[in-house]
C-alpha cells in the first residue's frame, strides 16, 4: 500500500481532457490490437444479427410443431434435433437469441442506468445520501423477486386475460430489482478511488463532484463493473426462465434460452441436445461479453496509456 501512495500517479484523464478525441482514437487502436476481443466482438455482432434476422434465417417457425418428429436427435434434416413438441430446435435457438439477448441486455442497461448514478452518489456524497441509498438497497435485497413478480402480475393484469407475451413485464421486474449489486459495486469502487491522489488533486483545483465522478472515478471503476455486467447477462437470462414458471415470464411457445435450459431438466438424461445447445449459447454470449468487456477495459484503461 505504501508503494501506492509513494508512487506519483499521473492524472491521465485530466491531462487528456483537451484532446478527448485522441483518447477514443487511442482506445480504438488498442482495442483493434486485441485479437481475442475483436474476435469476440465479431461473434457478438453475429449473435445480434441472428437475433434481429431470426425470421429470415431460421429454417422453420419457432412454433411450428410436427408431433411425429418429436424428440429427434440432431440429424441432417434438423441440425440440432427437435424438441418434445416436434419443433425444429435450431429455429427455436435462433428465435431464442432474440428474447434472451433482449432480456440480458436491457436488464443490464436498466441496472446500469439506476445503479451507477446511485452508487456514485452514495460513494461521493456519503452521509445521509449514502445512508438512505444503502438502506434502500437492503430493503430491495430482502424481497424475493417472485413475490414482487406475483404482485406485478396482479396489478398489471387486473383480472383481464393478458394478451401480451409478457416480455416488458419480465424486463421491468428483473431490472428494477437488479440494480442493487451494480449500485453497491460502484459505491465501493468510488469509496477507494476518491482518496487517490488525482482525485484529491482535482478536488483541490475546485472541480465539481459530478465532473470528478464522470471523468476520474467512473473510468477507474470500470473493470469490476464490466465483470458484473458480464455475469449479469446469464443471470438475467436464467431469472427470466424462472419467472416463466410463475406464468409471469414470456409465454410459450415463444422460446428463450433460459427457458429452454430449464425445460430440459426432465429430458436431459436421454435427450441431451435439449439442454446442451441452449447452455452453449448462453455460455458463448457470456464469454464473448467478457472478452469484449476485458478488451474495452484495457483499451480505455488510462493506466495503460503509454
Amino acid at each position: 500500500m505504501s508503494t501506492a501512495t509513494d508512487t506519483p500517479v499521473k492524472a491521465p484523464a485530466a491531462a487528456a481532457e483537451p484532446e478527448v478525441s485522441n483518447l477514443w482514437r487511442d482506445a480504438y487502436r488498442r482495442f483493434r490490437k486485441n485479437k481475442l476481443a475483436v474476435g469476440a466482438f465479431i461473434v457478438l455482432v453475429f449473435l445480434i444479427l441472428v437475433a434481429i434476422f431470426a425470421d429470415v434465417i431460421s429454417p422453420a417457425r419457432y412454433d411450428y410443431s410436427n408431433l411425429i418428429d418429436a424428440n429427434q436427435f440432431p440429424n441432417s434434416q434438423h441440425w440440432l434435433g427437435t424438441d418434445n413438441v416436434g419443433r425444429d430446435f435450431l429455429s427455436r435457438i435462433i428465435y431464442g437469441a432474440r428474447i434472451s439477448l433482449v432480456v440480458g441486455f436491457s436488464v443490464q442497461i436498466i441496472a446500469l442506468l439506476i445503479g451507477v448514478p446511485l452508487g456514485i452518489a452514495a460513494g461521493m456524497f456519503g452521509g445521509w445520501v449514502d445512508y438512505i441509498i444503502m438502506r434502500g438497497v437492503e430493503v430491495l435485497t430482502a424481497i424475493p423477486i417472485w413475490l414482487f413478480a406475483l404482485f406485478i402480475i396482479t396489478v398489471w393484469q387486473s383480472g383481464e386475460t393478458n394478451q401480451s407475451n409478457g416480455l416488458l413485464n419480465v424486463i421491468l421486474a428483473i431490472g428494477l430489482v437488479g440494480w442493487v449489486d451494480i449500485c453497491r459495486l460502484t459505491r465501493a469502487q468510488i469509496l477507494t478511488l476518491r482518496e487517490k491522489e488525482y482525485v484529491l488533486a482535482a478536488n483541490a483545483i475546485g472541480a465539481k463532484p459530478i465532473h470528478i465522478a464522470i471523468h476520474h472515478l467512473l473510468p477507474n471503476a470500470l473493470a469490476p463493473l464490466i465483470v458484473a455486467v458480464t455475469l449479469g447477462i446469464p443471470s438475467a437470462i436464467f431469472t427470466e426462465a424462472g419467472l416463466s414458471f410463475l406464468g409471469f415470464g414470456i409465454n410459450d411457445p415463444l422460446p428463450s434460452w433460459g427457458k429452454m435450459v430449464a425445460d430440459s431438466s426432465s429430458y436431459i438424461r436421454v435427450y441431451w441436445h435439449l439442454g446442451l445447445f441452449p447452455t452453449i449459447c448462453i455460455a458463448i454470449t457470456m464469454l464473448t461479453f467478457s472478452f469484449v468487456g476485458d478488451g474495452l477495459r484495457d483499451a480505455l484503461d488510462p493506466n495503460l496509456k503509454t
Partner: peptide, 16 residues
C-alpha cells in the same frame, strides 16, 4: 452471482 442472487436463486431454482 451477486446480492441479488438470493432472489434470483429462488426464482431460478423454483423454475427448475
Amino acid at each position: 452471482k451477486k446480492g441479488l442472487s438470493r432472489r434470483k436463486f429462488v426464482v431460478l431454482t423454483g423454475g427448475a
